[in-house]
Nucleic acid binder design. Sequence first.
RNA 1: GGCGGCGUAGCUCAGUUGGUUAGAGCAGCGGAUUCAUAAGCCGCGGGUCAUAGGUUCGAAUCCUAUCGCCGCUACCA
Length: 506
Amino acid sequence: MRYYITTAIDYVNSRPHLGTAYEKITADVIARFQRGLGHEVLFLMGNDEHSQKVAAAGRKAGLTPSAWCDQMAEVFQSAWRALEIVPDDFIRTSEPRHRAAVQEMAQRIRDNGDFYEGTYEGWYCVGCEAFKRAEDLQDGLCIEHPARKPEWLKEKNWFFKLSRWTEALKDHYAAHPGFVQPETRKNELLALLERGLEDISVSRQGTDWGIPFPFDPSVVVYVWFDALINYVSATGFPGDPARHAAWWPANLHLIGKDITRFHGVVWPAMLMSAGLPLPKTVFGHGFVNMSGGRMSKDAGRTTDPVELAERFGAGSLRWYVCAEAVFGGDLDWSEERFIARTNTDLANGLGNLAARTTGMLTRWREGRVAAAPDSEFLRRCDAAVDAYCACMQALDLKGATAVAAAVVQDANAHVDRTQPFAMAKDPARAAELDAVLAELANAVLIACRLHAPFLPAKMNELHLLLTGSEVDPASMIRTARGARIPAGRVLQKMPPLFPRIEPPAN
RNA sequence: GGCGGCGUAGCUCAGUUGGUUAGAGCAGCGGAUUCAUAAGCCGCGGGUCAUAGGUUCGAAUCCUAUCGCCGCUACCA
């Protein structure tokens, strides 16, 4: 089975902040989970490079657009590496493979009669890269970019007959209830479809930083028609039909809730017009808020995820953003909450469990792990794997972290229930002690597997200490149920996996 | 303005198609314990379920109105 997951591609006009990273982290978690089931996964990320804003940022830095983009591609990719985000492919819209796909799509849509020529005139905001309606301007200025005066443009434009696809889209939504998630985002788009769709302009003239239309090289493809197509470009469309057929349609487009319209309406209409099947699911995640507002450069509210990863570890940051809020809703960034979450779940929970378990083993058993008993307790741990998978399949990341944490909690409670330290004092209870310690060590192993998509490097380290081998990314989840440490393996007492973070005193 | 959603314990939120004494996590308080990163475990929540009405044998859960907050209302990743 194959699983193709994509994230939105990013404009390269500034460094990525935590809000940008949030989407990539969650996508990486989902991709690792799917790989862990044994599925063949294509996890795609990328940069959106064709934009006047990008070209302007390059000019400002004294670089050509393409040199600027090269530089920024490294900035982005090193940030993703620091966060343990590892896509299988990273596409840049200035690549030839993307140009080929865009031109092929454009030609197909043209051949299907869905493009027509017209003129568009109106106020154009370079900041937004969009025409603005007069009623949306305030004192003649764009609300979001008051520093830049909108320009009155009148230009020849190609239009896409989006309106023609209204009914087909409604039908698709009706036949595929999970097409757009979460529900609230779907309802917004259904309301839009109910009102009826208008045709949209899809070309811009007066710039050569972009992809020209194959049937009209005097204009370039407008941002959405350019950017969205990256999802099929990366599958090898149109040059490698076999590879394209293997990966398309995507299983999941993970995007921000603000761009569901383009992914839930414009994109599927484009695909239908070009004769390609539609993605299975479009999921609009929430924003990362901070001091009460959306994290954004414009508002001066940003947090550097790379810096956080350096201070606290990428794993803890990944765990926080997945565990702290329901996926699909907004997330609050709060250092206080982050520290509490990390200490509770990771330091005092999983880390301490690993330390106390290996501590008892080394103290009374020279580290030797006995054969795992067939016990009620371990059956509960195994059953948690199923509950966890159900959450992950439903994109309930918070639910999945809760299940993983519950295994740890159950194991910690098990120590108190069974009192191994009392057994250790009574030589007659040696077999009992062996069994309990084996139960605990194996609970740590199962918990390790369930935490692995969220904390790849840390769990790899733990897995190595526990079993002597690294996590197998291609089976870590599939074999989590029933995963056991070989009898007789000798463990060392583990150092703290997650040092407790001391909250700033005040 | 129109459409949609929300307002539940100090904080963040769960609450299935209306039905026993309204739940969880965090914080706080208390207890027993010691293997462990002074971590872990157990116990403790008298909250007008925004407000006012209504439907019903019975509503946080349905209907109406009011107040407050949020999202969408088209061509920005």
